[in-house]
């Protein structure tokens, strides 16, 4: 009985913060402005301009996630191997930027990459050609990687640090090469961390509209931008909700896929 009382604040929280908003989004998504049922809002994802924005968002999110992984995984391995007592400090350095507001960090990149910005000031000062990536997809990917990298580093680092060193030593004793150890021991054992890292980077990258707004110069429309626009300037909450529902499907799919990978990873241990 008492347990139920304990849970009540959380039930209220879940109801107010998750269930009710979800029901409202579903309601708006499946009705038109007059309140009549329609599936048009959801189906409109197939329309050329929506599908293209979704495709571009998926592509940029995938690229950013891949880059984050390529940066984070070796870092975790290096830290595991290093005999320095500075591992915690290194991680701290990587996570430190998160102490600053995410909007400010993105805005900083805007200023840094701008044509008259710091990087180009230095490059032209040295007589080198200017870097012209602001207002392109490349700048958006850079922003995503910078903003979301800590979400990849932390879970991978945690799982890699937990791998029992004796397993690795045993593999070497039995004649495994470095590559073999990496492939057959370390990588499979890190899968849970990798999977949660990928989810934590891919999902926000897929839905972002702030980064693409700030670093894309208004020239690149991702699905997040379209949804935001439907709620603000176009004041069509129904279409915005319909598209959000489609996004949710993609997110749930990717999470389901990754959690399966996660389980398989653990299952293969046994």
């Amino acid at each position: 009985m008492s347990r139920r009382y304990f849970a009540s604040p959380f039930i209220v929280w879940i109801a107010a913060g998750t269930v009710i908003p979800l029901i409202m989004i579903a309601y708006y998504g499946f009705t038109d402005r007059s309140g009549a049922f329609t599936i048009e809002n959801v189906v409109s994802i197939m329309g050329a301009e929506h599908a293209q924005a979704l495709w571009l968002a998926l592509l940029l999110a995938l690229i950013s996630t891949a880059i984050c992984f390529v940066l984070a995984f070796p870092l975790a391995l290096i830290l595991k191997d290093s005999r320095l007592g500075t591992k915690g400090f290194m991680i701290f350095i990587f996570v430190l930027p998160m102490w600053m507001n995410f909007l400010l960090r993105t805005m900083a990149w805007q200023v840094i990459l701008e044509r008259g910005g710091i990087i180009n000031g230095i490059l032209t000062g040295l007589g080198l050609p200017a870097l012209d990536i602001i207002n392109t997809p490349a700048a958006i990917v850079l922003g995503m990687v910078y903003d979301f990298l800590p979400f990849m580093v932390l879970p991978i680092y945690n799982t890699v640090m937990k791998i029992d060193n004796s397993l690795i030593e045993a593999a070497y004793d039995l004649g495994a090469t470095k590559g073999k150890v990496l492939r057959s021991i370390i990588l499979p054992l890190s899968v849970p961390g990798i999977a949660s890292g990928i989810t934590m980077v891919f999902v926000p990258a897929l839905t972002t509209f702030v980064i693409s707004n700030m670093l894309g110069g208004g020239k690149i429309n991702l699905i997040g931008n379209i949804i935001e626009q439907e709620f603000t300037t176009s004041s069509n909450w129904n279409l915005g909700s319909g598209l959000s529902l489609v996004m949710m499907i993609f997110i749930v799919l990717s999470m389901a896929l990754l959690s399966r990978l996660d389980k398989n990873g653990e299952a293969s241990l046994i």
Binding site: A48, E49, H50, Q52, A53, N221, Q229, E230, S234, N236
Partner: peptide, 17 residues
């Protein structure tokens, strides 16, 4: 009005895409 908003919005998205 809603009709005009939707018309402008769809052309805007087409331009953005």
């Amino acid at each position: 009005g809603a009709e005009g908003d939707d018309m402008y919005s769809s052309y805007w998205k087409e331009f953005k895409a």
